[in-house]
Structure formats: C-alpha cells, structure tokens
Amino acid sequence: MKIGVLALQGAVAEHVRMIEQAGAEGVVIKKVEQLQEIDGIIIPGGESTTIGKLMHTYGFIDELRQFAAAGKGIFGTCAGLIVLATEIAGQTQPHLGLMDMKVQRNAFGRQRESFEADLQVKDLDHTVRAVFIRAPLILEVSDQVEIVSEFEGQIVAARQGKLLAASFHPELTDDIGMHRYFVDMLNDK
C-alpha cells in the first residue's frame, strides 16, 4: 500500500517516516499526477489558508475531491483537518469541504499555548501521544461523522468513511498509533 504526503507545507518527512513505520510505503506528493499512484494521502499541518491557496495554485482541490469520491483515504492533521472540513468558523469558504464538520482555527491558543497530551483513540488499545500546536478544534459533526478522540470533552479526532481528521500532530512523536489507524482504515476496503 502506498500513502502519499501532500508536500506543500508541513512536516512531510516526519509523516513519511511514520507511514513506513506503520507498514506502508510513504510517497512525497508534489504533483496531481502522483495521486493516481497512491491509496491514501495525508494533508499535514501548517497554515490552512496558505495550504488552501497552494492547493488551488497547483490544481489539487478538484483532484483531491475526485480522489475522495473514488473511495481513497485522506488524513488531515492540524491544518489538514481544517482543509477537510465543510465549515470553518468565521470563514465563508471551506477548502476541500469533504468532511461534514464545523471547525475553529487556533482553538487551543497561539504558539506559546502549545502542549502535549495522551489521548484515548477509539479502536486503539493504547493511548496516543498528541502534540497540539495552534491546534484547531472540531466544534460540531453530523451523524455521518464518528468521533474518534476527545480531549477534555472537546472533539480532537474524527472519521467519516475513508476521511480521518486530527487536531494534533501525530508525526511529531514516536507513537505510530494514528498512522497505523489510517493504514488499517485504508485496508478495510
């Protein structure tokens, strides 16, 4: 199985390393043509507005919508979660608009309020170490979306079919739990 990491911004090499530790082949994705070669893709963190603009510039918006419509998986981490959402609090336009949830940017504060926490994740038998850096929050989900993890009663990870979203950066720890979760999710044809 091949899983790509969208290389427009964020911790690309770290995600590739985690994908490979989770048992799949990691591929750096810089061109839309490469989407045909992979089974799933991770949209890493960074700054969601910038990622959205770069996705438009390089033609990824429609291609990723088609990718998801074809039943392939997308995992958005931190800003990638925002990119997946159908609604962003305080903004009129979503980016991909694929995952039926409302999110809030920088919900946990600015850079200096960054923190780490151990989270319970549905269907994992161990806690996952999560790094929250200017993290977004999932405010609301439809009944099509399954809540995967919460932190202090707030939704920080969710799944809708082959779409997975996390408020945090799983790639900045040594814990491959979330990447293994995504690989297993894609294997569940």
Rank of each mutant, 00 (worst) to 15 (best):
40 G>S: 03
56 H>F: 12
146 E>P: 07
50 T>C: 01
15 H>T: 02
45 G>P: 02
25 E>T: 14
15 H>P: 04
7 A>N: 13
125 D>M: 01
59 G>P: 14
47 E>T: 10
104 Q>C: 13
146 E>R: 01
4 G>W: 00
179 H>Y: 03
16 V>E: 05
6 L>C: 09
3 I>S: 04
104 Q>K: 15
107 A>I: 06
168 F>H: 02
18 M>T: 10
55 M>E: 10
28 V>E: 15
97 G>I: 06
186 L>I: 05
147 I>A: 00
11 A>Y: 10
182 F>V: 07
114 S>V: 11
121 V>S: 04
56 H>C: 13
177 G>L: 12
56 H>Y: 14
23 G>E: 13
43 I>T: 07
166 A>T: 15
27 V>G: 13
104 Q>L: 11
85 A>I: 02
25 E>I: 12
23 G>L: 07
44 P>W: 07
177 G>W: 03
27 V>P: 09
46 G>S: 09
34 Q>G: 00
121 V>Q: 06
7 A>S: 14
46 G>R: 07
60 F>Y: 13
83 V>L: 12
154 Q>R: 14
143 D>S: 11
155 I>R: 07
17 R>C: 01
177 G>K: 00
97 G>C: 04
78 C>P: 02
51 I>W: 01
67 F>E: 02
30 K>Q: 14
83 V>N: 08
101 M>H: 05
28 V>L: 14
98 L>W: 04
37 E>F: 06
26 G>D: 03
57 T>V: 08
30 K>C: 10
50 T>I: 08
3 I>G: 06
156 V>F: 05
4 G>S: 11
175 D>H: 02
67 F>G: 03
126 H>M: 03
186 L>S: 05
